[in-house]
C-alpha cells in the first residue's frame, strides 16, 4: 500500500496571464504506515500537493498511483479513493453542519452507502478515537469548544476508515494543551490502526516531536525529504525559505558554540535533556 507521485506538475490557470506553476516535477513515494510531516512557507505548494493525493486536483503533468493503480485512469473508482485517503482541511470545524455531533460524524460513512448499523458503529468508534465523551453526542456541534469541534470534524473523516489520513494544520488556533491532545490522539491512532498520517504544519516543534519523516516544500518543489534530525541540520537553508528548526536545535547550537561538547542534531526536549546531562557529566 503506497502512494507514488511520478513527476507530478500542476499549473494553475495555464495559458492565462495568471499562470502559476504550483508543483514542479514532484516525485515522492509515501509508504504504508508512515508518519510524515509536510512543511513549507505559505504558498510553497503544500496544499496543492495534498489535494492531489485523493484526486481533488488532476495533475497537469505526471501520474499518481495508489496501490499501483493510476488514479486518473478512466475506470479508476475515485469515490473509493476518497474514502481511502481522508483529507482534513484547515479549520475543519467550519464544515460541521448537522443538528447534533453524532449525525455530523455519520454523514461521511452514510454517503459510502453503508447500512445504518455499520454507519453508527463507525461514528461511535470515531468519536471515541478522538476522545469525545458520550454526553456530547446529542449536543449541537456548534455548542462545543474550539478544540472539541475540531475533534468532531476529524472524527467525521476517521469514520470513513481511511488508510491514509492527511491533516492540514490541525492545531492552528488551539491552546497548547488542545494541540497536544489532538496530536497525541492522532499518533495513538496511527500506532493502533497502522494508518498512514501526513501532517501539514507550521509548528516545527510539533513536527519534530511526532513524525518519522519530513518533506520540505519550496516553490513547488521538494527541497528536503529525510528524517527530522537530518532535515533540521539544514536550519540555515530552512530559514532562507521562511521556515526554522525547533527552538531546541538552536539551543544545542548555542551550547556547542559556548564550548560544551554536545550533539547538535537534536530536535526534542527529551533528547536535549539527556544530551546536556551527559555533557555536564551528571
Amino acid at each position: 500500500m503506497s502512494i507514488i507521485l511520478d513527476h507530478v506538475n500542476y499549473v494553475y490557470e495555464a495559458g492565462t496571464a495568471m499562470e502559476f506553476a504550483a508543483l514542479k516535477d514532484v516525485s515522492l513515494t509515501i509508504n504504508e504506515g508512515e508518519f510524515i510531516g509536510l512543511i513549507g512557507h505559505t504558498g510553497s505548494g503544500k496544499s496543492t500537493l495534498v489535494q492531489h493525493l485523493n484526486g481533488l486536483l488532476v495533475p497537469t503533468g505526471g501520474n499518481i498511483y495508489y496501490n499501483g493503480k493510476d488514479i486518473h485512469d478512466k475506470e479508476y473508482n475515485k469515490k473509493e479513493l476518497r474514502s481511502r485517503v481522508g483529507l482534513v482541511f484547515q479549520y475543519p470545524e467550519h464544515q460541521l453542519f448537522e443538528i447534533d455531533v453524532f449525525s455530523d460524524v455519520c454523514f461521511g460513512p452514510k454517503n459510502l452507502g453503508l447500512d445504518r448499523k455499520e454507519v453508527e458503529l463507525r461514528a461511535y468508534a470515531a468519536l471515541k478515537q478522538v476522545g469525545i465523551e458520550d454526553e456530547y453526542f446529542y449536543q449541537s456541534p456548534f455548542d462545543l469548544s474550539g478544540g472539541q469541534k475540531r475533534r468532531v470534524a476529524i472524527a467525521g473523516v476517521l469514520a470513513m476508515k481511511p488508510d491514509v489520513l492527511v491533516l492540514d494544520e490541525p492545531t492552528a488556533g488551539l491552546d497548547p494543551k488542545g494541540r497536544d491532545e489532538i496530536l497525541d490522539q492522532i499518533a495513538g491512532l496511527r500506532e493502533e490502526t497502522g494508518m498512514t498520517v501526513i501532517l501539514v504544519s507550521h509548528s516545527m516543534e510539533d513536527v519534530a516531536r511526532y513524525v518519522g519523516r519530513i518533506i520540505v516544500m519550496n516553490r513547488g518543489q521538494v527541497m528536503f525529504d529525510d528524517v527530522p534530525r537530518a532535515v533540521f541540520r539544514h536550519y540555515r537553508e530552512l530559514e532562507e525559505v521562511g521556515l526554522a528548526a525547533p527552538q531546541v536545535t538552536y539551543i544545542m547550537q548555542a551550547l556547542r558554540k559556548s564550548g560544551l561538547d554536545v550533539d547538535t542534531d537534536l530536535t526534542t526536549i527529551e533528547e536535549a535533556r539527556e544530551e546536556i546531562l551527559r555533557a555536564v557529566g551528571k
Binding site: D175, P176, K177, G178, E205, P246, Q247, V248, I251, I269, A272, R273, I276, L277, K282
Partner: peptide
C-alpha cells in the same frame, strides 16, 4: 492547559534532573 517556551521547559527539566 498552557505551556512555556521550549528553552524554559528544557531548563525546568534540567533543574528537575538536579
Amino acid at each position: 492547559r498552557l505551556d512555556v517556551p521550549q528553552v524554559t521547559l528544557l531548563s525546568h527539566e534540567l533543574r528537575k534532573s538536579g
